[in-house]
Nucleic acid binder design. Structure first.
Lengths: 248, 248
DNA sequence: CGTTCTGTTGAAGTCTTTCAAATATAGTGG
DNA sequence: CCACTATATTTGAAAGACTTCAACAGAACG
């Protein structure tokens, strides 16, 4: 979650020099400054903002609802998903603290947002955002940057769903998550979402996700201290899975 | 390709009353007015625009290239794709006449664009678009609408890749295409792209796409007069496949 | 501490891919 | 215009990957 993280940390922190997981998504950092600026600009919205909280698994809004608010996550995790007519579900993305969502949608939300864990967020009335956009062109610019980031996230995910097998998908997912958390190699990474959520994100069944993780454990690529934590041990192996065989 | 079509036809043409394929994507028409307006606004760019043509299978630009131009398709079809390190390829979308692409990207293009058939386009320098955006806030607004549309396209495709089996994917693809062409039930729909392109779009192999089409033929859901044309015969059956079993 | 939910593993079944071959289409030069 | 060659599509058969179903294990919670 490069964009979200960079919205939190001070922009001049040059942690780009530190070792990173090198997930393809890392390039997305270029959108970071935009996010930081957006964050600053949103301060102008403070007097209209409200602190809201949602309990684990609570629905924040549903696809088709009138898009009245945009949200910025303070703590916890949110999933954006689409529910199909026949009960299937596709999780488009998981959002970490710092992430902003609900700004893309005009009129109606295009997807549902649900709390993965207990979540605290700031809500901003869309009307005020639109008003601010009209007076401050740079705000638009930064929202644009956020959009571009989101686009790249989705596009990368299209590749995952369109081209990768189960193990590759799980590896991609873990690397993406590690990168978004700004985790360092060896760090414990939080997995607030359940296995079923991971499955719904990766277009697999829960069993297949389990088996893939088990295999990664067996190979020594990852260690799973608790159900909701994971440590990436062999980055090279994970990257080879996620980014294709040619990787060195 | 609702947005593209609506960019071509006069905006007050109420063809929404005509029978349509009813692909889920049809709702996307809400972005239509934005596209129409964008189209008008782009006229202000005319003196900077250039007519360009690309031959079938020619690369228009590659992922990572400096994003110097945005394009509007006049005729022909363009595919937007991502090439992975190990040679695999994911086609994110096929674009029809009226479609505008290359506006989202800042600095570098985030994907490659290739001509599916011989293509004629209008190219607009990004610098001029940015300049125009600064002076005309409504332009931004319309580009935004275009972005929203593109987002919905990608999101719908995520569901296709994440939740559907081969036959469902092909059905979704055909309905989407029919809707974008603004085709009426019974019309011949052009398939300028080869089977391999369809496969790369749907995350399947070419053989599986063939088999799925063959099966749809056998069931009488479609008729395939030539390799590059298809007629949707049984919309109800196709929709049931694409939108889930609950569809009446 | 028992109940319930979530996660893990095993085995069988299904769907898709892979590999191979045949057919059809498109393109080219005579 | 036809024959020929190259390319693309279709079909078949076997292999492989993922899913499904079922049972078990483990964590969470009252």
């Amino acid at each position: 979650m490069t964009m979200q993280v960079s919205a939190i940390r001070s922009d001049d922190t040059p942690d780009r020099s530190l070792p990173r997981f090198g997930y393809i998504g890392a390039e997305r950092g270029c959108g970071g400054r935009g996010q930081q600026a957006l964050y600053d600009d949103l301060r102008a919205l403070d007097r209209f903002s409200a602190r809201v909280r949602f309990a684990k698994n609570e629905t924040i809004f549903s696809e088709g609802d009138k898009a009245g608010h945009a949200y910025k996550i303070v703590s916890g995790m949110v999933r954006l998903c689409t529910h199909t007519r026949d009960g299937r579900r596709q999780i488009a993305d998981f959002l970490l603290p710092g992430a902003i969502f609900g700004i893309i949608d005009r009129g109606e939300y295009g997807f549902s947002a649900e709390a993965v864990s207990d979540v605290v967020m700031i809500s901003y009335p869309r009307s005020q955002i639109d008003r601010l956009s009209a007076t401050k062109p740079e705000v638009i610019d930064h929202i644009f940057a956020a959009l571009t980031d989101q686009f790249m996230v989705m596009q990368r995910h299209l590749v995952v769903l369109g081209c990768q097998n189960a193990k590759e998908r799980v590896a991609s997912f873990l690397l993406m998550l590690a990168d978004r958390c700004n985790a360092m190699p060896g760090d414990r990474i939080d997995l607030p979402m359940g296995r079923q959520d991971i499955a719904s994100h990766l277009g697999l069944t829960i069993e297949t996700v389990c088996r893939a993780i088990t295999e990664l454990k067996r190979e020594g690529s990852v260690v799973v201290p608790t159900l909701n934590q994971i440590i990436l041990k062999n980055l090279r192996a994970l990257r080879m899975l996620a980014e294709g065989q040619h990787y060195c």
